[in-house]
Each structure stands twice: as C-alpha cells, then as structure tokens.
Design a protein around this nucleic acid. Structure first.
Length: 236
DNA sequence: ATGCAGATAATCT
DNA sequence: GATTATCTGCATG
C-alpha cells in the first residue's frame, strides 16, 4: 500500500482567519497531517469567543489554559480533560480573538499502522472506522499531546516529491486541501457533550460517513453521595 | 443496538 | 468542592 502519499497542497493561514463557525464546515474533507499520520476530517465543532459562546473555553476570558485560542490562527489548541484525554482544535480569527474548531472525528488516510499501534491498549482489534472516531481518539491517532498545544499547523515546509506531498516534517503539522465536502453532503446540529448553549447548531459532519462519532448529550455526573452528606450541611 | 457507571486530574469557583 | 468540548466496559433488549 502507499506509504502515506498525500496528493494535495497545504492550506494557507488565511483559511483560518475567519469566524470558527464559517471555517468549521469547510474543514470537512480536509486532511490534518502530523508526522507520519494523517486524518481526513469528517466531524468538527465550532467554538466562539469571550462572552458570545457559553460553551467555549474562552467564554470567561483568557486563562493560562486557553491562551493559545487567543493567539494567531492556524495553530493547534490541545487541551487535557476528564483527567485522561486530550482533544485538538484549530485556532480561528486573528490574535486577540479566542475561538477555534474542535476536531471530533476523521478517517485515517496515512500512517494507519502507526495509528493502530497508538490505539492498541487492550490488545483487541479496533475497526479502521473507529480509529479516529471521537475527539480524544483522533488526538491519540495523530499523537497530539500537551506538548503540542500551540503547534503551528501551517507547516513551513511540507515534504513533497514533485507536486505530491509525502508528509510533513517530524514534529510539524499541516492541514491539506484534500477533497472538501460539498455543502450538499454536510449536516449540522447541536454540539456534543456540552451543558450550555445546547441549541447552537455548530456541530458539522459529513452526512453518512461511517467515521462520524455517535451523538452524545451531556450527562451531569452524579456526585459522590458520601462526600456531600458528611457534616450534615449538604443540600438535598 | 442503547444505556449507565467508573476512571482520573486539571481547571476554575 | 464541582465540573469537565470523553472513552471503555459491562449490562440489558
């Protein structure tokens, strides 16, 4: 099989210099490459800026964690959540505007052996369609960790032979043109797993694609009953 | 197929 | 102390 040859050019930074809800649907069908692995994006979610999107990490302003979202466009915002998972975003709008697009799912189109290795924890075989089906899985497959927070995804020098990209330099990332999904094949709806702004339809996916993750509504986690009842001052 | 509970720690109140 | 832009395993239909 082809050792990960990718026949398309890298997107320019200007692509990301727009509101995240405009960038998000146009990201579908594009390819994010990081080192040897590349994923064709099939599902994304847009998150807006301070004061305008209650579900966004930047809603209450700039903090150490979300600082990258306020930086220049085209960089990766990678955050740690639920005590064990990383999720990756692409920053939108110019410096000073904290918004981004969460990369929720995709199809592995290069470096699939490496992708499988990175996802094989419990010895069981994982169907190809599930390798990057979900934001934390996608981050694992692409090898995106805390240290990649802030990484520029506009690779300065993609590795090419002729007009054909064969990858990106080790440690670098790039978003390739790929084959953009036409508007007729893109669906949208409420974002997944959030407790606020539940009606904002900023989740976008390629209709019918098997790598799109199943929708999950936010479920409030029940607190430890013992911890809240000790002392007698707990509420209900 | 769908649903729930547990894991596990940074971040913010 | 509470919440979290989630995943996995195990339960049930």
């Amino acid at each position: 099989m082809g050792s990960g040859e990718l026949s398309s050019a890298a997107l320019p930074r200007g692509f990301f210099d727009r509101p995240s809800h405009e960038v998000a649907p146009e990201l579908l069908g594009r390819v994010l490459a990081h080192g040897p692995v590349a994923v064709r994006l099939t599902e994304v979610e847009a998150y807006g800026g301070p004061g305008e999107d209650p579900a966004a990490h930047t809603y209450r302003g700039r903090t150490p964690r979300n600082a990258v979202m306020f930086g220049p466009p085209g960089h990766l915002y990678v955050y740690f959540t639920y005590g064990m998972h990383f999720c990756a975003n692409l920053v939108c709008l110019p410096e000073g505007f904290g918004s981004a697009v969460l990369l929720r799912a995709g199809e592995v189109v290069a470096g699939i052996d490496e992708a499988r290795a990175r996802r094989s924890g419990n010895g069981r075989a994982i169907p190809d369609r599930d390798l990057a089906r979900g934001p934390a899985r996608l981050a694992v497959v692409l090898g995106l960790l805390r240290e990649h927070n802030g990484l520029d995804a506009i690779a300065p020098a993609p590795i090419a032979s002729g007009r054909r990209l064969t990858g990106v330099p080790h440690g670098a990332a790039a978003v390739l043109e790929g084959i953009p999904a036409g508007v007729e094949s893109v669906s949208s709806g409420p974002r997944t797993g959030i407790s606020t702004a539940k009606d904002t339809p900023w989740r976008f996916w390629i209709d019918g694609d098997p790598t799109v993750s199943p929708y999950r509504a936010h479920v409030p986690r029940r607190r430890n009953a013992a911890a809240t009842s000790v002392g007698g001052a707990s509420k209900s």
